[in-house]
Amino acid sequence: MRIPFDRSSRSGLRLSTFALPLLLFIALCFLSPSFLSVQNLGNISGQVAALLIVSLGQLVVALIGGIDLSVGSVLSLATTIIVSVDPSYAPAVALLAGIAIGLVNGIGVTYVGVHPLIMTMASMTFVQGLSLFIHPVPGGTVADYLGSLATSPLLGIPAPLLWCVGAVGLAAFALSKTRFGLRLFAIGASPPSAARNGVPVKLYSIVCYVICSVAATVAGIFISGRVSSGDATVGASFALDSITAIAMGGVQLAGGAGSVTGVVLGTITLGLMTNGMNLLGISPFLRTAATGALLLFAISMQRRNVIGV
C-alpha cells in the first residue's frame, strides 16, 4: 500500500504519525524488560480501549471542523448512570442521555451558531455537574453482564481488544465505505460547497455530534464494566487526551483531513507513553504534564488562519 505523505492528503497521515509510536515501542523494548510480556500488552489494550473509542468519536466531529470538549463529562455521566439505574435498562438510559447531549451540542453549533469549543465547554461543565449530582461518591455496583462484557476474553482474545477491533471496524467502514463518510470529508473541506452540492450540512453536523457523544457513552459503559464502579470524575482527562490523540494522528482540527489509521496510531502513541512512564516508575502526574506538552506540539502542526478561540 502506498501511503501519501504530502500535506494535501485527505488522510492527514505523515511520516511522524507512524514513526513516533514505532520509536516509542522500540525504546520501551530496550528500556523495560517487562514491556513485551503478555500481561503488560494486555494492560495496554485495556488502558487504550476507552480512549480509542472516544477518539474515534472525536475524529468524526473533527472531520467536519468541529470539536467536542464534553466527551469526558459524557463518559463520566455514563458510568454514573450505569450504577444508579436498574441494570436491565441502564445501558439504554446511558445511551439516550448521550444522544440527548449530542443533539444539544449539535443544534447549538449548527442552528444557533455557537462556536463548537464554547458550546461543548458549556455542556462539559453542565454534564460534569449532573454526574456529580447523580453519583457524588465513586463506587456502586455494576451488573455482572456488563462486567463480563468488558473483561472476559472470547476465544482467548482479551475483551478490550475486541472492543477496539469493533470500534475501529465500525468507524473505518462508516468513513470509507459509505456515502455518509465521504460527505463528512466534503463538509470539512468546505461547508458552503458541500451544501451547494446537495449535502444536508446541518443534519450531518448534528449527527456527527451525536455519534461523538454516543462513542463517549459506550466508552463509559466499557469503563464502568471494567472497573465495576461508577465515578463522576473518571472521564476528566478524556477531552484533552482524545484531542491530543487525534492531533497526533494527523487529523486536522480545521476539518476535512483525518483517518481511522491515524487515530489508532495517535491513541497507541499516548497509550505507550503512559504505559512506558508507569513501567519506568515516573510519577503519573508528570504524565499529565507530558500529555499537555504533546498536545501543544501536536496542535503546532495544524494549519489555521484565525487568531483566538
Binding site: 470538549l69 469549543l117 465547554m121 484533552l240 484531542i243 482540527l253 510519577s283 502526574f285 508528570l286 504524565r287 499529565t288 504534564a289 507530558a290 500529555t291 499537555g292 506538552a293 498536545l295 501543544l296 496542535i299 503546532s300 495544524q302 489555521r304 488562519n305 484565525v306 487568531i307 483566538g308 478561540v309
Partner: peptide
Amino acid sequence: FFIVRIKASSVIVTLAMALILSGIVIS
C-alpha cells in the same frame, strides 16, 4: 506565542498549559 504565531486555538493552548503546570506542580 502559540496563539498568535502558531495560530493555535487559544482554548486548547491554554488548557494544555494548565495541564502542564498542574502536572509538574503535583508531581
